[in-house]
Design a binder for these strands. Structure first.
Lengths: 206, 206
DNA sequence: GTAAATTTAGGCCAAATGTACTAATTATTT
DNA sequence: AAATAATTAGTACATTTGGCCTAAATTTAC
């Protein structure tokens, strides 16, 4: 990736975050960077190309950082670590999540990427929960399909917390990520066993 | 409310739902109705006025329908009923929730309305949960603030399920509302007492 | 050092949009 | 019936935006 392109993406990301994807034009971005409209188009022919490139950046960072988190002692610890990392990176690219339906509506490729990712996430959660059940950290299902529903809950939350934050949280608040990581982890608490709870408290409250 | 205005709102709602708020212009709406662009502007000077009027419709319907649900025998039954009603009405106006951040970004009035509504909802949930705890249908908190977090979970879900559905559900699926009402009710299950669970099963599975 | 490729800028165009103004038509009131 | 108010249509204008083409400038390759 070019230095120049990285600069363009950085500024595009800032403007998208500040004003929303729909409200920012290629001309505005070019003006902000200090280059001509044509020049920006030379590098990124359309707004969609910028968005795809930024999404690509996000994925690269997420993959790179998550490979550093493999030595968790418990499923719950790994979960907390990857949640913190994931939420932090995602927040940097929050314009994607804030305008997600709008972006995916006119971007079939990205939409399909999201559908694929959703399946991966569901599998990942499913495996982690199974591990936690096996280690007697989480209880058995109370009814058939309970954890399937639970996974739906946390998937929707993972997609939605940024948009929710954009609506309800004060922009001055600088504990946003911490707040939503905590809320996310709170999803698990009622499903934990007594043992799970003591492990959880230990991991989570240092 | 005028017959004419109602027609305009109906068609605007359809177009917003189908193509997204940002992608529909006043000229398109006018063309679809079969009136001149100027005429539409006479009734609704801007897109925002249409959105505010539609939101007003939504609130009127929600208030009217919820007044018919006062005779629930349990908090859980009332919760289920008002959830079903609320989700059904909201789904009719789903364009509002799908493009929510975008809409609220350039609509301070509606944004403040949402912030106020959020507080009302939180209080309502808080009261219902307290009732359920008092009636031994839901358990006590396991830790200080557990139900505060829980209310955050269900508020975010309530705001987000429509956008999530727009992204992940097949448009042919016609059990969408049922699916998300079920998911919503599933949030409560792990917090129920044994008694709460038997009541819940009875209410929910007829 | 020269040729080729890459990058950059400027201008032009067509389409769309919001806005405003005027005139005509229709409905309502008196 | 006449006057007044409400509704509707037409038009024109400024702005913005995405696309496209050409030429200049800069970098890279040979």
């Amino acid at each position: 990736m070019n230095k120049k392109k990285e600069l363009l993406l950085k500024i595009a990301k800032r403007l998208f975050t500040e004003y929303g994807v729909a409200e920012v034009s290629l001309r505005q971005i070019a003006a902000e960077v200090g280059i001509s409209h044509s020049n920006l188009i030379y590098h990124f022919p359309s707004k969609n190309d910028l968005i795809i490139a930024l999404h690509h950046q996000l994925m690269e960072k997420a993959i790179a950082l998550n490979q550093q988190v493999k030595t968790a002692s418990h499923p719950l610890e790994g979960l907390l670590q990857s949640t913190q990392i994931g939420f932090t990176i995602l927040y940097e690219y929050r314009f994607l999540m804030i305008d997600l339906p709008h972006i995916l509506r006119d971007n079939k490729i990205l939409h399909n990427t999201f559908l694929d990712l959703e399946k991966l996430r569901a599998d990942m959660y499913s495996i982690e929960i199974q591990k936690a059940v096996d280690q007697n950290l989480m209880r058995q299902e109370l009814y058939q399909g309970e954890y399937t529903g639970f996974i739906e809950h946390i998937k929707i939350f993972s997609d939605a917390w940024i948009a929710s934050s954009a609506i309800y949280d004060s922009p001055e608040n600088n504990n946003i990520i911490e707040k939503y990581v905590k809320l996310f982890m709170g999803f698990f608490y009622p499903y934990l066993t007594d043992e799970g709870r003591s492990v959880f408290d230990e991991v989570y409250f240092q």
